[in-house]
Write a protein that binds this DNA or RNA. Structure first.
Length: 1006
RNA sequence: GCCCAUGUGGUGAAAUUGGUAGACACGUCAGACUUAGGAUCUGAUGCCGCAAGGUGUGGGGGUUCGAGUCCCUCCAUGGGCACCA
């Protein structure tokens, strides 16, 4: 690693330390970051004669672990784009903030007693200082924090708009609930007349309205853990027990808030057509919404007035229905079960209840079910169909009942086989009796009026018949459920809701925000309520009025933050409509795929609702979405010999093994070589090395008790150079836990306690594993470390050079030297180590202009399509070529600096001012490079007169020939056929055909 | 099981429209300058081969004058969803 002096410039790159000629990145970066801050150059106005561009990052949750090198990948990408657009003459909004409500802070408070507000503030400070180091162009005057009362006042306000709206099924949009009330009062509804409505009590009316509100109350199941006294998120529950502590978790019904996102299913689906998201992202959202088209069919039940509705996507298989299956929770179960089957059904219900209480033990899924004794009648051929119940049918999807077609559906088939239900074959030879065949291509048999039809052709025929005869109707179904919108937690937005006589009422707008009260204790309230329920004086408002004690979930604040950035200090509205009209949609949104269905769907929903209520003028928030890949950590492993008892079950042998067993680490390749190539027993290997210990010897006899394993141990990546362990640092690690360790090196040499690597040429080589970057895996890299060594510009450019932004990749610092070298090389176009200033005002040659304009073209194209890794390579090519041309001309260098400024703003700004000011006065207040204009491409410099064509003979590349681009096809043919190499490979055979694609290639066929 | 994405040198990768595969870097090797080099510069570097040449983008097949790119099929890796009717 390069030694760096205190000023942060590379020690050797300069002549006499801090002379004029040095690329002193630390000094430059500090200077410009301060100047940019002082001048407020990143402040952006809400109006301009320039076109607008809104470039947004997904704001971070300020975790205690701070920023690691994975975070900035997306931020750098967006920063480059924002700076580029600014140079291109746009008024660019590029804000940043914090998603500062959330579970980890509350968890931390539970453990340490520190208030989330305090730890959050502290974490934000750390994040901010780390972000500042990288030199982003954020307009910090627009910072938002979701946990700030000034912010969540408007989260609550928007919630109330949602609460006070309903989805009009005719207009397919949200309307104020007052319109619905008017309608009920004047015209009534399907279910009641206006007179009836007006006669209802307040509570009756409110209950009816709750059925239509877009934010509504219902009773939903949560994961309740009695031992922890709290509600757990799904991912905190593993195999029916809590992740922490392993306590049992049961389902518990609780009053919950929901957002009626299902009403928007179709619009959320349609909206995907209008935005630029990746196909993968759109597909994920489509899967989540889960639209399917089919039919809802009514089956009458024999000897009963009840009927059964099923939903199917395959009405063509109606003649193959051999049984029906209801979800155990289905309403009809009790009503249709025959007396003889009552006991069996009751037993099965008992069983499923027990199952649902424990989070189902997923993997082994046995076939279970019970017969109700009742029969349904097939509406087409009047066959009697037994009705079963089984847990594989879910109450929440479709109608909670299915028609089972065993020859076409594997689950139905398994069920039929298991319970010996006869199977009807409706697809002839396409069914083999061994397994179901879900084809749509088979010809139907045993299917009444559908006989002889191809299944896929039969679908519209049977649908028509179903509708004609009134036994059912076409139906579009969505998998998506309404979104749970309340949490039994403390660190979130309180609901602006007050209950009177059990009816939920909105808090008056003028009392917003409902501030989160301070608490000292973060434990859950009684009966699984949130911690807020403990604060009686806050909850109880007297005369039967009580506050809602739930808080909003993490995604509440993040569902609309992009709007607040536009007008962050507005006290009168969440954002002024004139301002949201100006900034409009986010032009580019950059963030990780992990938010594919959560955050992105919810913010799309909120945007659509606000649009419907005429509060904003666009109904999709993000015009273009760019998913950055994950930066994985690269963990380093050392391998420790550990003793294990020789015989299985010989537990007492463990006591005969000497403890503490010394730390012996073996270099991985050497170990593998011993085992693989030489077939050595690891015990023998250890036996050899143990003899080197003076402090720890084992007799031959004792050794009998030992067997050995090599056990991997993660070591802090910062103690490893590439894969070579820094043994001295490692010995100091963790307060010297491994100070006495012995190392068996790559060549088999032993390095014992206290010995220095010194003259020994060998190394200790670590194993490598790529996994998630995480503190507990000792593989996090703090950007500050890289920036201290190489500077922010190098760091920024290196992250972009790693590969395509969208691609996940492991972090690796090898290669960063190349970027640093490049920046020094760029600097040397302006300053020579010995001669000092070498840039000049001479007139540029055509060759130099060609290099410049080639680069302009490439950078412009690549930046527009976010292909930053290739853009970086274009810069390298440009600097290499200018170096070869010995070009130090301002006419070339000045535009080049503008091109590179979005990528490496500090060095660009510094050199820009050198060019602009006189050498004696280089800090003069010239206009910043941030406000320069992007150089204009002059295609005339790129015009080529001739092209070196690749020439193939029989499709095999043999040579290249330079030919003028003006040459006619005949001339080309003549030139090619006269070429010696071509003649050699033609070998006297006659020309069959010559393929000539202008400006591409030539292929000679013989 | 279903859906999506990705497979290219020792490594990160490039090839934007079907047209010279491996740009640009890292690493490695050789050399220059130097008291020194972990600075800088020059050259080499897919694989096999002394060379001529052959071969090569996960495997197999196809379309085409021409395939990393298009089609079929199989395999591997990563991600998402999962008794979804």
């Amino acid at each position: 690693m390069t030694e760096i002096n205190k000023e942060g410039s590379s020690q050797v790159s300069l002549n006499g330390g801090d002379s004029d000629g040095a690329y002193n990145f630390r000094k430059i970066e500090e200077k410009w970051q301060q100047k940019w801050k002082d001048s407020g150059i990143y402040k952006v106005a809400n109006s301009s004669y320039k076109p607008k561009c809104y470039v947004l990052d997904m704001f971070p949750y300020p975790s205690g672990a701070g920023l690691h090198v994975g975070h900035p990948l997306g931020y750098i990408a967006s920063d480059i784009y924002a700076r580029y657009k600014r140079l291109k003459g746009f008024n660019v909004l590029h804000p940043m903030g914090y998603d500062s409500f959330g579970l980890p802070a509350e968890q931390y408070a539970l453990e340490t007693g520190q208030h989330p507000a305090v730890t959050t503030e502290k974490n934000i400070e750390t994040f901010r200082s780390q972000l500042d180091n990288i030199g982003f162009s954020f307009d910090w005057s627009r910072e938002v924090r979701t946990s700030d009362p000034k912010y969540y006042k408007w989260t609550q306000w928007i919630f109330l708009q949602i609460f006070n709206s309903y989805f009009c099924n005719t207009e397919k949009k949200a309307l104020p609930i007052s319109k619905l009330i008017d309608k009920y009062a004047t015209r009534g509804s399907k279910y009641f007349t206006a007179e009836q409505w007006n006669g209802y009590s307040e509570k009756q009316q409110q209950d009816i309205l709750m059925e239509r509100r877009l934010a509504f109350i219902a009773y939903g199941e949560v994961n309740w853990c009695e031992a922890l006294g709290t509600v757990l998120a799904n991912d905190e529950v593993i195999n029916g027990v809590s992740e922490r502590g392993g306590h049992p978790v049961v389902k518990k019904k609780m009053r919950q808030w929901y957002l009626r996102i299902t009403s928007y299913a179709e619009r959320l689906l349609q909206g995907l057509e209008t935005v630029e998201f990746s196909d993968a992202m759109k597909e994920m959202q489509r899967n989540w919404i889960g639209k399917s088209e089919g039919a809802e069919i009514t089956f009458n039940i024999q000897r009963s007035t009840f009927s059964l509705q099923v939903y199917t996507t395959r009405p063509d298989t109606i003649f193959g229905v051999d049984f029906m299956v209801l979800a155990p929770e289905h309403d009809l179960v009790n009503q249709i079960t025959t007396p003889e089957q009552k006991e069996e059904i009751a037993k099965y219900l008992e069983y499923t209840k027990g199952r649902s209480e424990r989070e189902r033990l997923a993997e082994v899924k046995s076939i279970t079910g019970a017969f109700t004794g009742a029969y349904a009648i097939n509406p087409f051929d009047s066959r009697e169909i037994p009705i079963w119940i089984s847990e594989y049918v879910l109450a929440g999807y479709g109608t909670g009942a299915i028609m089972a077609v065993p020859c076409g559906d594997q689950r139905d088939f398994n069920f039929a086989k298991h319970f010996n239900i006869p199977i009807t074959n409706i697809i002839g030879d396409d069914y083999n009796g061994e397994e179901a065949n879900p084809t749509k291509e088979a010809v139907l048999i045993n299917s009444g009026f559908l006989n002889g039809m191809l299944m896929k052709d039969a679908i519209p025929v049977v649908l028509l018949k179903i509708e004609e005869t009134g036994i059912g109707k076409r139906k579009v179904n969505y998998k998506m459920r309404d979104a749970g919108f309340s949490r039994q937690r403390y660190w979130g937005e309180p609901f602006p809701i007050i209950y009177k006589d059990g009816v939920a009422y909105a808090v008056d707008e003028k009392h917003l925000p409902v501030e989160l009260p301070h608490v000292e204790i973060y434990k859950s309230g009684p009966e699984g309520k949130g911690p807020l329920a403990n604060i009686h004086e806050w909850v109880d408002l007297g005369s039967g009025a009580e506050r809602e004690t739930n808080t909003m979930p993490g995604y509440a604040g993040s569902s609309w933050y992009f709007l607040r950035y536009m007008d962050p200090h507005n006290d009168a509205a969440f954002a002024d409509k004139k301002v949201t009209d100006y900034w409009n949609q986010v032009d580019v949104y950059i963030g990780g795929t992990e938010h594919a269905v959560g955050h992105l769907l919810y913010s799309r929903l909120w945007t659509k609702i606000l649009f419907d209520l005429d509060l904003i003028s666009f109904d999709e928030p993000f015009k273009k979405l760019l998913n950055q890949g994950m930066i994985q950590g690269s963990s380093r492993l050392v391998f420790r010999f550990i003793p294990i008892p020789v015989e299985p079950g010989g537990y007492e042998l463990i006591h005969k093994i000497k403890y503490p067993f010394p730390f012996i680490f073996v270099s991985i390749n050497y170990y593998n070589k011993l085992i693989d190539e030489m077939g050595v027993d690891p015990r023998e290997v250890l036996n050899i090395y143990l003899k080197n210990f003076s402090s720890f010897t084992i007799s031959e006899e004792e050794l009998e008790y030992y067997s050995f394993e090599v056990y991997p141990l993660r070591v802090d990546v910062n103690l490893v150079d590439g894969v070579e362990l820094n043994i001295n640092e490692f010995r100091k690690w963790r307060n010297g836990e491994y100070a006495n360790a012995t190392f068996i090196l790559e060549d088999g040499k032993v390095l014992s306690f206290g010995e220095d690597l010194g003259e020994v040429k060998s190394k200790y080589i670590c194993g490598v594993e790529t996994e998630k970057m995480s503190k507990s895996k000792y593989n996090t890299i703090n950007p500050n470390e890289i920036i201290n060594k190489y500077g922010a510009d190098t760091f920024r450019m290196y992250e972009m050079f790693l590969g395509p932004v969208e691609q996940s990749k492991p972090w690796d610092t090898k290669g960063i030297e190349g970027i640093h070298r490049f920046l020094k090389k760029l600097w040397r176009l302006f300053y020579d180590d010995i001669k000092g200033k070498i840039w000049n005002g001479e007139k540029a040659s055509d060759a130099e202009l060609k290099v410049l304009h080639k680069t302009i073209k490439k950078i412009e194209e690549d930046t527009e399509r976010f292909s930053y890794n290739t853009a970086v390579s274009a810069f390298m090519i440009c600097v290499n070529e200018l170096t070869d041309l010995k070009c130090h001309k301002k006419e070339i260098l000045e535009p080049l600096l503008i091109l590179i400024a979005p990528y490496t703003p500090h060095i660009a700004e510094e050199l820009w001012h050198h060019l602009k000011g006189s050498p004696e006065n280089r800090d003069s207040e010239e206009v910043s490079i941030l406000d320069a204009s992007f150089p204009k491409l002059e295609p005339k410099y790129l015009v080529e007169a001739e092209k070196e064509y690749p020439v193939s003979i029989n499709a095999k590349m043999r040579t290249t020939i330079k030919i003028s681009l003006d040459a006619s096809a005949e001339e080309v043919e003549k030139i090619v056929l006269q070429n010696e190499v071509v003649q050699k490979w033609m070998d006297g055979k006659p020309l069959k055909k010559l393929i000539y694609v202008k400006n591409k290639m030539i292929n000679v066929l013989v």
